[in-house]
Each structure stands twice: as C-alpha cells, then as structure tokens.
Design a protein around this nucleic acid. Sequence first.
DNA 1: CCTAAATTTAACCAAGTAGTTAAACTTTCT
DNA 2: AGAAAGTTTAACTACTTGGTTAAATTTAGG
Lengths: 202, 202
Amino acid sequence: MNLQKRSTEELILEAAQAVFLEKGLAGARMQEIADRAGINKALLHYYFRSKEKLSALIIERAIGVILPRVMAVLDTDMELFDKIRLVVDTYLTFVSRNSFLPLFIINEVNRNPQFFFRTVVEKERTHLDKFRRQVEEAVAQGRIHPINPAQLFMNVMSLVIFPFLGKPIIQVGLGLSDEDFKREMEHRRTEVAEFVIRAIRA
Amino acid sequence: MNLQKRSTEELILEAAQAVFLEKGLAGARMQEIADRAGINKALLHYYFRSKEKLSALIIERAIGVILPRVMAVLDTDMELFDKIRLVVDTYLTFVSRNSFLPLFIINEVNRNPQFFFRTVVEKERTHLDKFRRQVEEAVAQGRIHPINPAQLFMNVMSLVIFPFLGKPIIQVGLGLSDEDFKREMEHRRTEVAEFVIRAIRA
DNA sequence: CCTAAATTTAACCAAGTAGTTAAACTTTCT
DNA sequence: AGAAAGTTTAACTACTTGGTTAAATTTAGG
C-alpha cells in the first residue's frame, strides 16, 4: 500500500488535468475523468469529494507549476539581456510541452480572478520588483531605450505565450501544418529574445 | 413591424453575445440569455431554434467583426513601418472596447478549429501574402533585420492581444488597478508599434 | 375590424449531471 | 486469519438544462 500509493490518486489527478485542460471547467465531466483514470465515479468521489474541490486542486497545481519557473529566472542576479534570453527559453520550452496549459489558466483566471489573487500573488509579486529595478537601472545608465518595466514584462510574456493560445488561428492564417508550427516555435526560442533585445538596446 | 424590426432579434443577439462572452459556450444558459434580452425562453427558441445555431451565429459575428479590420489594414499599400503603426492602433482601439472578445474567440477557435477554418480562411489568407511580400522586400533591401514574416506577424498579434487575455494575471502580477491597466493600454497604443519597429529596423 | 404574427404563460419532457448510498468483493497490512 | 482500506457495482436522488407544446394574450398591418 506504500510502494504504489501514488497510483490511484495520481492517476485521478492526471486524468482530471487532461480532461479539464481539454474541455474547460464547465465542459469537463466527472464520468469522463473517472473513465480516463480507469476507475468509477464512486471511487472518484471517494477520493475528491466534489468537482469543485477537484478542480481547485488542478488549478492550483497548474499555476503552481508554471509560475515559479518564470519567477525563479526573474529573481536571479543575471545580466538583463541574458536574463531575457533565459526566461524566454525556459518558458517556451515548458509551454511547448504543455501547450494546453496557457489556455486553461487564462480561462480560469479570467473566470475567477480572486482565486488567482489569493493563490499566488502575495508570495510572487516581490520577484518582479527585482526585475523592475534592474530595468530602471539599465534605462538610467542609458544601456537600453527608456521603457516601462511593466510594458517590457508584458511584451515578453505576450511574445512567448500568445502563439500557443492562438495556435489554430496562426496555423490556419499562415497555412502551417503541425510540423511547420512546431518548427516555427523552435525558431522562436532564439528569435523572440533577440527581437526583444534589439527593441530595447540603446 | 418594420421600424422597430431590429428590436427583438437584435436584442437577443446582443444578450447572447454578452452571455457567451462572459460565460463561454458551455457555461452560457439559454435562460439567462432570455432574461437579459427581456423575453422568455419560448420566444428565444422561436427566433433561434437551438443553442447551437445561436452560438454559431455569435461566433461568426464576433470573428467577422474583428478579422476584417486587421486584414483591411494589412492589405493597403502603406509603407511597412506606417502599416505596423496603423494596425497596432486599429487593433488596440477595437480590442480595448471589446475586451472580452479575444478570450471568447481564442476559446472557441481552440475548441473547434475547423469551424474557424471554414468561416474565414479561404477569403482572408490572401491578404497576408501582400504583407509577406512587403516584409521580404524590406529585408532584401536591407531596410530591416532579416525576419520571417510569419514571425513578425505573430509578434504584432501577440503584443496587441495578449495583455487583454492575461489582464487579470497582469493586473495582479504588476499590482495595477483598473485605471492603471487602462492607462498602460493607452501607452501601448504607441509603445508597441515603436517597440516592434526598433526590433526590426536595420 | 380582422387576421396573422409576436409574445407570454406555464407546464412539461428527456437527457445529462453531480453526488449518494449500500452492499459486495478485493487487496493489503498486521 | 482478520481487520481495514481500496474498489466495484448498480441503483438512485436531486437538480439543471435544452427544448417542446398548446393555449391564451397582445400587437401591428391591411
């Protein structure tokens, strides 16, 4: 009971995550989660009493996995341009492997902003202050064009995340196959960072 | 019956749009749409037989409103940098006034890509070829850094749209009030274009 | 005024869904 | 072996939701 303890509970969480990401909170069915986990509905409720509690766990898990990665990078003492390169690379790699995650998070955060607020903000906001000071310093030294750190951060996030949210639009609009899209995202890993750096370098 | 003919049908469509944008397709209730339109469910079904047909209309309407605006700008013979300035300004203005639209469209397009494909692609893709050639020409003339036109287009879309999708995250992460956020978006109207231009200008 | 369309009322159906329950069976630990 | 936890089965509830129906009422046009 201890070697495989991870089994059922983890199985359910994985199944739940998959279903929630694919169908969204409202569209997800407890029955489907049970089916995918290879168990039955009764057991599902036996482990996680309600859909609400289960979904709350999944959301926390999802946000808790992606956010610290970015913050960890922003929090280092790295030189600004290198930091931009690293954060783009880190984020892009992660999102490539979890391409449904951004849409799910964006959705739930929009549906219920306070939840995100409570879960994350207090701990993580401070990290951004460091980045902010770093940018302001670089501006003061004339190393980069004057830019509001908030805007710069928004720009980096936008360039990294959006293509995955708009994947179908982009694929269809630009006529890219799945392979093509993957290749473009591969290019972006270096392109985006250099794009940003050219945009701000004095 | 002719002066006010727009009345009920339009009322329903407006109510439906509002509810769909707020709750998403799965989360929207026919009853709530009826309530907001100030009518009853029976009449709602009397006008639009099913939820599916109604939602299809709303989606077409939403996409049909936002897409042509961008394409129209991309299709002009304007000089590249000016075109970037104009497309950013046009898009940002529109999205500011319809801030729920991007999330809705992104969602439905991800949920059902073929629908978007059938609705839009055939007519609109050609416009992008013009932009593509224009960028390639500018690269060839050495006026701008070498960049894949697809990547450039993705970057512009990302920078314009993403902040509205991630509004709650950004607000919370950067500690912005609604007023602050609005002001930042106002800044972006000029900032984003110049950001992109600096990034590509040779 | 008369008719047809628009609209309401209210009850209803069928399907789906979250969640419960109780009994039986199985596995695991001691 | 025996108890406890894990798991299944299957039926059931309470509720929501999309959609229907039929009759009554209101509105507008010819």
